[in-house]
Design a protein around this nucleic acid. Sequence first.
DNA 1: TCAACTCGTTCACTTAAGTTAAGAAATAGC
DNA 2: GCTATTTCTTAACTTAAGTGAACGAGTTGA
Lengths: 193, 193
Amino acid sequence: MQNLLFDFISKYISLTEEEAKAILSLDIFRSIKKGTTLLKQGQKSKNSYFVLKGCVRKYYIIDGEEKTTAFYTEMEGLTPHCAISDAPSEYFISCIEDSILTVSNPDMGVEINSKFPKFEIMCRILSEELLAKQQINFDEFKTSSPEQRYLNLLQKQPDLIQRVPQHQLASYLGIKPQSLSRLRARILEKNKP
Amino acid sequence: MQNLLFDFISKYISLTEEEAKAILSLDIFRSIKKGTTLLKQGQKSKNSYFVLKGCVRKYYIIDGEEKTTAFYTEMEGLTPHCAISDAPSEYFISCIEDSILTVSNPDMGVEINSKFPKFEIMCRILSEELLAKQQINFDEFKTSSPEQRYLNLLQKQPDLIQRVPQHQLASYLGIKPQSLSRLRARILEKNKP
DNA sequence: TCAACTCGTTCACTTAAGTTAAGAAATAGC
DNA sequence: GCTATTTCTTAACTTAAGTGAACGAGTTGA
């Protein structure tokens, strides 16, 4: 399982034995049960997560309604806003599958970054890359209809549609569960006759 | 005008005389006329921009229709995806006001970063910050209706609604110009009687 | 000065999403 | 194994956005 992490890192920088040991000594690997909430609205946790296996969801509760805005699956990381801003969290984060995550905090980052400056570089590249991806996602979302978004997701992450409850998927697509059901029926209707 | 840039930088790191001179020696300040296109779809420019004064717009042309997905105003920077990925650009970037920008490319970044490691740190902080902001924006967009988005924008960036043509604003909000007109009329109606 | 064009608005009509409610299907808990 | 709950779907109705067209105001350019 640890190899998954090192394989990922090796895409950005190459690690010496010493550096790899330094990371392992931080003891950051955790098994999390499905349904566990990692962060609640109003909390100030400083933890960052990286998904090695499983699936994690980010959601808001607005007017008593859950609004899911992101899913994180294998080889994706997330740093809640409250981990860098010291404002309380506006959202919840929870595991929707049994998962294996790395859990880290800024102190670990500072320690590793000061010992091994190349980590600073990896972090910059990672966040630049993530920013670029995020922007493309945002643009796609803005420029397309719910139906196009669904078809797009079907192409790009077909597994997500299987793994994730429909009502969570719906708000991820910016619509209500009933609309997603209807939309799916509409698509099937188009492709049948 | 250069002070605007240094004031901005000083929020993240403190510069020595030598470092400030190194930046100035790059000669990155440019005056751009309204209407100038900085990047076209299909191009592979490596330039990054930072807006000191004016307003820049990012838009796609999809099925012959312009879809504006972002505006960049004072003290905001943008690095097109093609500047880091060497894929051709999917979108256009153009000035919608007479503007003063800094224009830089990755070579300059590499040069400055290697001479002055603290720049690496600033870049990481900047892109982490930007990523966090971007995520909040995305979440707000997903969890709200076009009308809420408009009211939200009215609160957070009232100037933008004044500076920017309505039809560009409309696609920025994810709707058609006619819908924006109607939506504005609806809001006025609510607040009158 | 006048024609051509862009831009914002309005209108009538269509289409799709929101809302409310009900029931079937799957899941969890005991 | 059975109940309780959650999840998904369907339906009827409401509301808002998309579409196509028309109009006036403002701008541009010949």
